[in-house]
Amino acid sequence: MSTEARPRTAPAKPVDPSLGEQTRHGPVAQLLIAWSPLSTILVAYWVAQWITAPLGTGDGASTNRLGAPLHVLGPARADETLLGTVPTVWLQARLVDGTPHWYDAVAALVYVTHFVTIPLLTAVAWFRLRDRFREWVAAVLAMTLVGIAGYVAYPAAPPWLAAEQDRIGDVARVSGLGWEWLHLDVVARLTELGQSASNPVAAMPSLHAAAALLVALFLWSSAGRLARLLLAAYALAMAATLVYTGEHYVVDVLAGWLVAVVGTLAGRAVTALRQDHPPIEESA
């Protein structure tokens, strides 16, 4: 009895469980795909830094390339109005004595998480929360672009720069001091190198504070009680770190939190729009 040869079919491509899409890419390629939207942030940062470059450290031109002046005392006066003093000056007068302490190490560790949190959560959203990936990316891009627009429209000197110009009390930039306490001087030097190449008048709003709160807001709905406490603690720890280390005023942090809320709403709007207008499936 003869048997007919069955046609050979190609093996099925792996199917993404959340989007129902077929993918041919391995995990490394998928990670690069997930991170690709973040390149928009790098371009926006570069454009903003080019616009504010004439201001430098405040000793050169009086305005940026769009004619916006450098604001030095405005944020400090806002802090005084809200709290009766400039918290950065108050904290450093009591805690900074020229030698590193354990709390400087905590501050250094919290500060540096800003540079890994967004890429890390982007990867988690791609691999584990794929149904919310577009929401997360939209939230990050909206938060960042609104924040960078703030840098351009309102270039502001952080506390350490205002102190260098003798406009407020004594403030040192101590965000890298804790690495000495941890005996990681190489990390301290890398931090200083990165800060020297950053935009010195990009303080209002604080995107460090914004990113920390955005992470908390995005994960809040899927987090348990303990996780929510940790998320809230992280956002508050970042805020305290930024003020203590001379990187930002309290009003910078509050503005950053507002921008995080804007980003969150933008992300949710994208999700709502997709639910109202689902993609049209092709008929077989």
Rank of each mutant, 00 (worst) to 15 (best):
I280L: 15
V186T: 12
V137S: 05
A142E: 02
Y103W: 15
G67P: 03
L121N: 04
W179I: 00
A255D: 00
E192S: 11
S196A: 13
H277N: 13
G98V: 01
A188N: 13
D185G: 13
L190P: 05
R228M: 06
G147F: 12
V86H: 10
A149F: 02
A105V: 02
L226A: 12
V106E: 10
Q165S: 11
Q22A: 14
P119C: 09
L161T: 01
P14V: 08
L184K: 03
G178H: 11
H25T: 04
R228N: 09
W136Q: 05
G169S: 09
A272I: 03
P205A: 02
L258D: 06
K13Q: 14
L32R: 12
V253W: 02
S221A: 13
R228D: 09
L38W: 11
S222N: 09
V171E: 08
A162G: 03
A269K: 10
R132H: 14
W102E: 05
G26R: 10
M204F: 15
T81F: 15
P17F: 03
N64K: 03
A10E: 15
V174Q: 09
A223T: 07
V28F: 15
A5S: 12
D170C: 05
L254M: 13
A44P: 03
D16A: 04
T144V: 07
W179G: 05
E135I: 00
R268M: 10
L91A: 12
L214E: 05
D16W: 08
W181F: 15
A157S: 13
A272K: 14
A269H: 14
L231W: 11
V152Y: 02
A203K: 02
P27S: 15
L226S: 10
E4S: 12
W181N: 06
T57M: 14
A125S: 14
G98L: 02
E80Q: 14
